[in-house]
Amino acid sequence: MKRFLCGVLFALATVPLLAGGIHGKVACAGQSDNGNAVVYVAKVPGKTFPPPKEHATMDQSNRVFLPHVLPVLVGTTVDFTNSDPYLHNVFSPDACADKFNLGTFPKGEKRSHTFRKECFAPVLCIVHPEMEAFLAVLPTPYFAVTKPDGSYDIPDVPDGSYTVKVWHPKLKGSEKSVSVHGATQADFQIAR
């Protein structure tokens, strides 16, 4: 009996944690696929989120930034690495990203920058002008990037009512109010 009650209590305690979250699909009109949209919870009332100690990473490989879109929490430090056998550079022209320029560096080196403001900033390589990526610097840690099929999953979102926003590098953003009760679905459509 004791064991049974303990099991029930454990289950009740963990259900919100296991089931809570926002998932769904984002349809990106006119794009070759539905990937690279950032879905995020815009604000959690009364709560602030300290920047993570762990650094995020964006690599340059075969003259492509990987990942193409990197969402991070405000205050996160991003390490930019170079996996190509030639020089790369990393910079952003946007003021919200401090117009940082990490210089030019060879394979194996790493340069870092801390993003202190909310921002959607392009990241470029002046050596290879065709290279482009985006940093989404967000106010909460509840975010996800859509897969090519448009699906996303933001885990561990506490129950409550939130404004959920979508940002895309080429399309106009969208937002909607979402009441999260366990696993909650929210689909979006965005267009140019």
Binding site: L124, P129, K170
Partner: peptide, 8 residues
């Protein structure tokens, strides 16, 4: 083939 990212 891109000859420069949109941000430019």
């Amino acid at each position: 083939v891109s000859l420069g990212a949109e941000a430019y």
